[in-house]
Amino acid sequence: MPQIVVTIDGKTYRMACAEGEEQHLETLAADVDGKIAELRGSFGQIGDLRLTVMAAIMATDQLHEARRRLQDLEARADADMTSRAAGEASEGAARDEYARSLEETAASIERISAKLAGAQ
């Protein structure tokens, strides 16, 4: 199992990860480091633990917002699929009605043609 060393808030941490996940873990650690640096810039020296907790809360808030947006998009996609299916069913019914009307018209024309042919 690969191990990498990441730096967060000036401290180094050795971490294990799955094969091929090294870059991803480094990117995540850099994101956490950036959040802590952002908070430190806003609030100054308020304690490492408090900064870490605040960064975790910020990350969790972003995750919740992303999940909410995903659920909204999934609901919208489901509604679109339902609407599309209803539209297709309606189109099918309209085509059936048009075909039925066309058949009735053709039958009427045939009856009229037969009457005209018999009258001559």
Rank of each mutant, 00 (worst) to 15 (best):
R50D: 09
E21V: 05
I57L: 07
R76G: 04
A59C: 12
A107G: 04
G34R: 01
R76E: 13
L39N: 09
A93Y: 09
V53Q: 06
I57Q: 10
E38Q: 07
C17F: 00
E88L: 14
A86G: 04
I109F: 08
A56Q: 07
A94R: 11
A18M: 08
I8R: 08
E38S: 08
L25P: 04
H24S: 06
A93T: 09
T82C: 10
Q45F: 01
A29S: 07
E88W: 12
L49Q: 14
E74D: 07
E97F: 13
A66S: 12
A29D: 07
S90F: 10
L51P: 06
A85L: 09
L39Q: 02
R14T: 13
A30Q: 12
L73W: 05
L39E: 01
E21C: 08
A106C: 06
G44F: 10
A79L: 04
S101M: 11
R67T: 02
T27C: 03
Q62K: 00
M54L: 15
V53F: 02
L116H: 00
D78N: 09
L102F: 03
G34N: 03
G10K: 00
G41V: 07
T27E: 05
A94G: 01
V6P: 05
E19Y: 02
R111N: 10
L73K: 11
E104W: 03
M15T: 09
R68M: 05
G92D: 10
I4D: 06
G10A: 08
A75E: 14
E38N: 01
A107E: 03
A86C: 04
M81Y: 05
A30W: 14
T82M: 14
